[in-house]
Design a protein around this nucleic acid. Sequence first.
DNA 1: TCCCAGGAAGGCT
DNA 2: AGCCTTCATGGG
Length: 276
Amino acid sequence: MVEATIKNFDLKQIAESGQIFRMKETTFGTTPGYFIGSGSRSLFARQEDGQTFFYCTGEEMKEYWFEFFDLDLDYEFIAKSIDPEDFYLKHAAAAGEGIRILKQDLFEVCISFLISQNNNIPRIKKTIYYLCEHYGREEINAETGIRFYTFPTPEALARLDDTELKAAGLGYRARYISEFAKNVENERINFFDLENYYAPDLTHRYLTAILGIGDKVANCIQLFGLHQLTVFPIDTWINKIIDTYYGGRFPIEKYGLYAGVIQQYLFNYAVNRKEV
DNA sequence: TCCCAGGAAGGCT
DNA sequence: AGCCTTCATGGG
């Protein structure tokens, strides 16, 4: 168990912010909290009276979850850098206080956002859990005994036949998932280079060359899987906001290093408050 | 029944 | 470089 006092960190906000699809409200015994699946890992966490409790060892916290939750970045500084005359964004950031940009498992993020295209969040979640339950491994979280399914490996997804892909409800995206998994398995898609060497612009070109990945999905992979906070994914919701409140163009240049964080505040505000 | 959802591919101009 | 249509699926 790791206990900490963390400012600008809210599990509920993160769970509902639309960037992660396998984080759900649940209980450990009678204790309410959130259970997260990330690749083959899992974690139960909860907050009470300003304290955060991570149900894992200090070792696991240091080697994975600390970075996963982006606990080293000062989000208050980012909020303060918002143009004081941009009232819409100020409201969005205030409403999204506690959101962090997670650094999730890269393969899971890629598959998840391939599924996300022309799709809605509840159905994306349903499809991803389906894949885990059918093609992941059943495991038991060490700290809590909670049963869960790991995210399928590239090999497992590469093996699916047409009938299985059809049953998963992937629709026309089935081919993208299948091709992607095969190309990760045979290392034509090189995750090591993506995670260690490429600057954002090269990463973007690399990703958009892959079947099924366009500008928006690439940006989401960069933001949520590679923690490149300079990117600004534009989906249907963000588009509506930009049209309605920013005259067709968002001043991304004002938020250079943290544009992705700003984008997440806007997205969260639109989706959860339906204020667009 | 039509419209929409964290879009992208392929074809056309 | 931009526009247009099509692509499965399920929920409102």
